[in-house]
Amino acid sequence: MYLYVGVGLIFVSVLYLVYAVNRQASLAQSSSDKTKTHNGPTAPELLSTAQVAELEAKLKQAYEHQIETASAHLGEELKATSARLNEQVVRLTTNVIEAELEGYQKTLEEVRKVSNETMKQLYHSVEEQRVELRKTMEQELAEERQQLISRFDTRMGEIVASYITESLGGGVDLGSQMTYITETLDANKAALKKNLSSGL
């Protein structure tokens, strides 16, 4: 818009200048014609045609120069403006992106915190369950081991007793046992006598 205004002003000023020059020339021409007709011999003319043409050429040259200057200036202004606009756009987009990224990072950070908290809770829960499970398993293993030991002890007693009994089974010498047998009977004489006397 400024460009158009500037060009317009220049154009108007040039036109005014040309108009002013032409008017001056026409006034000068009419004044000389009056002087010439009134006074008999005429005064010399203010601007000749060649001078007007030269002046017009100079004006044109000046006008073109002004146009070029204005155009160049306008171009430079446009470049600068465009650069500044680009810069502004870049800065704005960068700001926007940075703001969005910052928000995204904040969100990510919050999510990370929540995840960490959740993971910690999960870890503690799992650890507690692991400890509990370990304790339960150790207890069960201890009980099972004790049962196995008891069963083994029982079986071992029976095995040893059976082995001894089986080993003694062959080649029994009652003569050598009679002392033990009579001593055993003597030790339990009262019970035997009571049973044989009262049970009938």
């Binding site: 007793a161 001894i164 009994t165 003694l168 062959g170 029994v172 033990y180 339990n188 049973n195």
Partner: peptide, 25 residues
């Protein structure tokens, strides 16, 4: 022979087991 040794006395109403097998058991 499974008693290993000793004596088992069986009265009409009771058994008195003084065998080696019972002692081991």
């Amino acid at each position: 022979r499974t008693i290993g040794g000793g004596i088992i006395v069986r009265t009409p109403n009771r058994i008195f087991d003084y065998s080696f097998r019972e002692r081991l058991a």
